[in-house]
Amino acid sequence: MTIKSRPIYAPFKLDVTGRVHLVVTNLAEAPVEVEEAVGDVLVWTVKTVAPGVPAPAARNLRPFRSVAELLPQLAVRLAQATVGLRIYAVGSEAFIWDAYNVAMGAGLDGAEVFTHHAGPFVRRVYCTHCRTMIEDVAVTIIPCPVCGAHLFVRDHFSRRLAAFMGVIVDAEVPGEIPAAEALIS
């Protein structure tokens, strides 16, 4: 069954109306279709060669130590950039919407930002009770590591939070927690 609130991701394709293209990914390497893209494409990745040591930069390639380093640098870059830039966020669903939101915050329009999912469909879950974000969830029921609530992972995706909603599963009969199942998508 499709999830209405979950975006459908198109395959990577360069928007030829742009003048400068920047691909940001939380992966170590950009997917092969990015490598094959015709035109001048800048690629930002997350790749280290030792703890805290980013992989060497090359022409058009800039590896970061972490997503936590990459996203603020994206905001800096966007604040300096001029019109004609296109952003392509490639990678996990949580990352691409975080990057999308950074771009929106910098004043870009939806037509200037493209999201492409790559890798497994694990979910970032938002605990609606204590507002904790839980990364890389692959099952339908999880305990919140902060407030302890057993959360049912709803098929409800928020682009603003880049997360699925997690709501308490045993509110009516405390302690009655169904068995967790694997998330199929």
Partner: peptide, 9 residues
């Protein structure tokens, strides 16, 4: 002029 504009314009 058009090419020099910031992205939030």
């Amino acid at each position: 002029l058009l090419a020099a504009q910031k992205l939030d314009t």
